[in-house]
Structures are given as structure tokens and as C-alpha cells.
């Protein structure tokens, strides 16, 4: 038996909206430590890793480890039927072929349940090592969204370079070129409006803007986003989802032929 209840159901709605265009399907792996997902996009250049801890839920029970194959477009259709203020409970019997989603309005006068058909999905589980990065940058998630959106209108790829001067995003295209530089800035009173640059060594990598732009669909989940960069390795774009866990996007760099 698996059961997970979250009072702030809007978090689940936002999570699925952030993922559904990038990954069409994937396994929700549930265990007594929580719920996780690893899924690649269809072109296999990026990876989504979602971790939701059991203690972040208002109630969590998982008697047996299970992999629940989810079609995210279908899950999104069901979650759109939940109110933003609703409490959401996920439930499945052991070896079930469906996941039940129960929505409760705050006033308790409306309760609905939907069953989502589960799929059988073969998925490769990748071992992602914990590692030190050459540069880690925390910035307002709205700022990241604006940068990648603006640059997407100019070019297809972005060169991200982190130096002691700051972090620079550069692109070029038919209309011309663009450079946006952010400096370490802890002046704003609100921590979520600050920019932190932790640089161990300068690094410069090129990425496809289309994907970086797609990752910014997770902006409603967190006020800040963390970018981690190391030479020749995928960038990590990480959103902390309150006390519940995190969603991380990994994107392979573009390298010279």
C-alpha cells in the first residue's frame, strides 16, 4: 500500500507542469524514504531528477517499493481538476495498475477522486555522483527565466562563463549578439532576490537554449534556482521545492566537433 498526502496540492500541480513537456513518461519510484523520478527527454540530452522526501508530506506510507509508470500529460489532465487550495492524496495498492488521486477542498465540502492508469515503463536508472563543481550560482528563479527567455529570442545556444567578474550568458544569431552578466550581489534585503556566485575555478560551457528555457517552467516552484557548472560536464539547474525536496535538470554541454 502506498499513500501520500500533501496539504499544499498546488505544489504537485506545478511540478507536473514543469516536467510534462520535457518528459512524456517516467516511473515514480516510491519507497519508505519518499518519491523519486529519473527521466530523460526523448532526445536523451537532458535528465530530470525529482526527489520528494517522505517527511515533506503531511502523511506518507509505503509498505513496498514500487515503480509507478506515469504518463505526465495524462497526470497533468487529472491534476488540472484539482483546486489550487486542495489537499491532494495519492494512493495505490501494491502492484496496482492505477494511481488514485483524491482532492479535498479546504472547506471539506468537495471531495473528488480520479484514477490514473499506470504504464509499464522500462527505464535506465543512472548513478549521479555527488561532486564539487567549479562554479555554483544561486540567483532569483525569475531572473534565470528572464535571461534564458530573452536569449532564446536571439540565438540557439548560450555560452555560460563564470569568472571572478561574475557569470556571463552570451549568444548570437541572425539578429546579432547578446551578453548578460550577473554579479555577486547580496545587497537586496530579501535573500531570494540575492545572487550568490561561488567560484572555485573559471569555467565556460555552451548549452542549447531550448532546454534551459524549458527548465524555467519550474520557476513557480521556488524563488531561487542554483546553476552548477564544471568543465565538460552537464550543467545542473536545481529548484528546491520548500521542505519537500528538489527538482534537478541536467543538460549535456555542446562540444566542438
Amino acid at each position: 500500500m502506498f499513500e501520500a498526502r500533501i496539504t499544499q496540492g498546488s505544489v504537485l500541480k506545478k511540478l507536473v507542469e514543469a516536467l510534462k513537456e520535457l518528459v512524456t513518461e517516467g516511473n515514480f519510484d516510491v519507497s519508505n524514504t519518499g518519491l523519486s523520478l529519473q527521466a530523460m527527454d526523448s532526445s536523451h540530452v537532458c535528465l530530470v531528477s525529482l526527489t520528494l522526501r517522505e517527511d515533506g508530506f503531511d502523511h506518507f506510507r509505503c509498505d513496498r517499493n514500487m515503480a509507478m509508470g506515469i504518463h505526465f500529460g495524462n497526470l497533468s489532465k487529472i491534476l488540472k481538476c484539482a483546486g489550487n487550495e486542495d489537499t491532494i492524496t495519492l494512493k495505490a495498492e501494491d502492484n496496482a495498475d492505477q494511481l488514485t488521486l483524491m482532492f479535498e477542498a479546504p472547506s471539506q465540502d468537495r471531495i473528488s477522486d480520479f484514477d490514473l492508469k499506470l504504464m509499464s515503463i522500462e527505464s535506465e536508472h543512472l548513478g549521479i555522483p555527488d561532486q564539487d563543481y567549479s562554479a555554483e550560482v544561486k540567483l532569483p528563479s525569475s531572473e534565470y527565466q528572464r535571461i534564458v527567455r530573452d536569449l532564446t529570442s536571439i540565438g540557439d545556444t548560450v555560452l555560460i562563463s563564470a569568472t571572478k567578474e561574475g557569470i556571463k550568458f552570451s549568444t548570437s544569431g541572425d539578429v546579432g549578439t547578446a551578453n548578460i552578466t550577473l554579479r555577486h550581489n547580496t545587497t537586496p534585503e530579501k535573500p531570494e532576490e540575492q545572487t550568490f556566485i561561488d567560484l572555485k575555478e573559471p569555467v565556460a560551457l555552451t548549452f542549447a537554449l531550448r532546454y534551459l528555457n524549458n527548465f524555467s517552467k519550474a520557476t513557480p516552484l521556488a524563488p531561487q534556482v542554483k546553476l552548477s557548472l564544471t568543465k565538460d560536464l552537464p550543467i545542473v539547474v536545481e529548484y528546491q521545492v520548500g521542505e519537500l525536496g528538489s527538482v534537478r535538470f541536467y543538460l549535456a554541454p555542446k562540444i566542438d566537433d
Binding site: 530523460m40 536523451h44 540530452v45 537532458c46 535528465l47 535506465e124 536508472h125 543512472l126 548513478g127 549521479i128 555522483p129 545556444t157 555552451t206 542549447a208 560536464l233 552537464p234 541536467y250 543538460l251 549535456a252 554541454p253 555542446k254 562540444i255 566542438d256 566537433d257
Partner: peptide, 13 residues
Amino acid sequence: MKQKPINAFFGGS
């Protein structure tokens, strides 16, 4: 420029 698949960077388990 080319792009390696993401699973080339992480070992499978």
C-alpha cells in the same frame, strides 16, 4: 557543435 547523450555522463545501475 555536437552533444553527447546525457547517459554517457552517468553510470547506469
